[in-house]
Nucleic acid binder design. Structure first.
Length: 288
DNA sequence: CACTTTCTATCCCAACGCGG
DNA sequence: CCGCGTTGGGATAGAAAGTG
């Protein structure tokens, strides 16, 4: 049986539910989490929510190079059991036991969800079918991480899986840096901008929308330098207002989903989340 | 491992606002 | 009107990551 090193100290990382596809088997773990803690995870990991006595075994897939990881068989059941939805996020904390993680679940408004206690008071189910008030049969016995050998087919599916559970609309992720916060614009992938926004050498207005009521119009420029290399930047008063109105900070991640021509629905994944502690105090937890 | 692509930080300059 | 400081935007160098 292979042994896996434990992480340095009770590490935590955050898993954001951005699209409905994130609720299905195949949810990708954050790149930074894979880099830091991927070596601590076996072929299966075990998740447990607060107030719950059962461990949920989740199959983990790795890319060929090992730089990416996905939650597979078991994740969808876990998400369904706790009625996760878009805008939720999950805080994974290493439990000090091999490949076991305590998972705290939060609404988009930073509030922790109400957990079902020992099978009672189970949240409303999204999915019909088997009675899910009790954990599934495979939870009764812990699955040995080495008991399930990965088939060749599964390994070959890694690449297709990596692309299959993204949104059906073009997505662009932008991590805020000190420069983006301090200066007047943020650089985005020029190939994405060229394909989905405007032609090289031109600029246009793009609409950034958090909700139907909260909309900003920013300028997107796709330029070309003297060596004919493309660059693209979102800037202008609209971008400034957007980052200020949404209190963007360094390490926050914005997910731009192209919902219409030059219109992006933006989800903001906070680098810091306020965690309400039992004594009524709160603390900021760094997620990335 | 070399090449390509993307990201990040920084420089430079024009435009603008403000006080004298 | 002039000088100075600030801000916004174009451009680029270099680092980092990805790819064949």
């Amino acid at each position: 049986m292979a042994t896996f090193p434990r992480p340095m100290a009770s590490p935590s990382f955050c898993l954001k539910i951005v699209t409905a596809n994130d609720l299905r088997d195949g949810k990708e773990l954050p790149e930074t989490a894979v880099k830091k803690y991927g070596h601590c995870m076996a072929e299966s990991i075990f998740l447990k929510a607060p107030n719950c006595w059962t461990w949920w075994p989740i199959k983990v897939k790795r890319s060929v190079r090992g730089g990416r990881m996905w939650l597979h068989k078991g994740w969808q059941d876990f998400a369904n059991f706790y009625s996760l939805d878009q805008g939720y996020f999950a805080l994974f904390t290493y439990e000090g036991e091999h490949s076991h993680f305590l998972v705290r679940l939060f609404h988009w408004n930073d509030m922790e969800i109400d957990y079902p206690i020992h099978g009672g008071g189970v949240p409303k189910r999204k999915r019909t079918g088997a009675n899910r008030n009790t954990p599934p049969a495979y939870l009764e016995a812990r699955t040995s991480p080495t008991s399930s050998g990965s088939s060749t087919d599964e390994n070959q599916n890694d690449l297709s899986t990596a692309t299959s559970f993204k949104s059906d609309k073009p997505l662009l992720m932008l991590r805020m840096t000190a420069t983006y916060i301090r200066c007047s614009g943020a650089y985005i992938s020029p190939s994405f901008a060229k394909e989905h926004v405007c032609r090289p050498g031109t600029s246009c207005n793009v609409t950034l929308q958090i909700s139907e009521e909260k909309v900003w119009t920013a300028q997107c420029t796709v330029g070309e330098n003297s060596e004919h290399k493309l660059y693209a930047r979102v800037s202008g008063a609209g971008w400034k207002a957007f980052k200020e109105d949404n209190h963007l900070e360094v390490h926050d991640v914005c997910v731009f989903e192209l919902i219409e021509e030059r219109t992006f629905k933006v989800s903001i994944i906070r680098a810091k989340v306020k965690i309400n502690k039992q004594d009524g105090e709160s603390e900021d937890k760094l997620m990335f």
